[in-house]
Amino acid sequence: MAGGAASGGSATTDTYKEARTWLLMPAWVTLSILVLAPVAMMLVYSFLTKEFRGGVIWEFSLAAYDQFFCDRGLFGDEPCTIEWTYLQIFWRSIWQAGTATLLSLAIGFPTAYFIATRPEHTRPMWVFLITIPYWVNLLIRTVSMKFLLRDQGPLNDFLINIGLIDSPIHIVNTNFAVQLGLFYSYLPFMVLPIYAAVERYNFSLSEAAADLYATKWVTLRRVLLPAVKPGVIAGCILVFVPSMGSFLAPDLLGGAKNFMIGSLIEEQFKGNAGNWPFGAAASMILMTMVLVLLLLYARQQARAEKAEG
C-alpha cells in the first residue's frame, strides 16, 4: 500500500475544487486528532517520568531513553555502557522480519509471476484466492497456525502417520515458528505489488531476449527482474514493516525466548508492572526506524520515476 504513496493517484478533474477544503475537513480533523496528536503526545510521554502503577508523572526525564541505551550496573550508579538487552530485542525483530520477508519473497515471487501469466479473465480470481486469508482475523490465523504446528497437532500427526518422522518436530516456540507466522500474516502484501508489476511487464522484451539467445533463466534475471524491481521492493517493504512491529505471531508462536519489539512495548502498558515512558520511547524508536525506511523508499521511487521521465 506504500506503492502509490508518493502520488495517491492523479487528480482527474477539478469539478469540486471549490468544495475541496470542506470535503477534506472531516478526514483532516479525524486523523489529526486521532493519529497525529496521539503520536505527538507519545513523543511527549517518552520524556516524562514513570509512575509505578502505570501512567506518568508530568516531570521531564530522559530515563526512558537512558534505560533503553545505557547499562548503569546493578544499582544504577555506574557510568553508561551500552545496554544490549533492548538492542538485542530490536536486532531479533529485524532478523525475524527480514527472514520472514525473504521467505515471502521466495514463495511470493513465483506465485505472483504465475498468477500474472494466467489468462486475463482468471487473474482476478487468483488474486482473490491469495487475498482471502489476509482478510481473516489475524488472531484467528495465528491461533490456527499454532494449532496446526503444535507437537500433538495435525501436522505432526500426519507426518508420523505417513511414517516420515518418528517423534513430533518441535516447531511452536521456535524462531522458525515466528518466521512462519509472519510469513503467513503478510504474504499477500508480497504477492500483490509483484503481481501488479509483472502484469504490466511487456513480454515481448522476454521474447526479444530469447531471440538474442538468452536462456530462460538469464532472461528472468537480466530482463524481467530489473523491470519488475519496483514491485519486488514494494513487496519487501510491505512485509518487513508490519512484521517488525508485530505482536501476535511472536507472542503466540514464539514464546518467551523469542521476544520481539511488539511484545516489549505491549508489556509496558499491561497492569502495574509497566513503564509508560519506556514503552513510548520504544514505540518512538520503532516508528522512526519504519518511517526512515519508508522515506528512503519514497525517495528512491521518486528518483526512479524521474529517471523514467
Binding site: A2, L31, V35, M42, G245, I265, W276, A280, S283
Partner: peptide
C-alpha cells in the same frame, strides 16, 4: 495513509497515551 505506514502497535500505544 498514515495509519497504514505507522506500525499498528505504535498507533495503539499512541492512541492509549492520547
Amino acid at each position: 495513509s498514515l495509519p497504514l505506514m505507522v506500525p499498528e502497535i505504535v498507533t495503539a500505544v499512541a492512541t492509549l497515551i492520547f
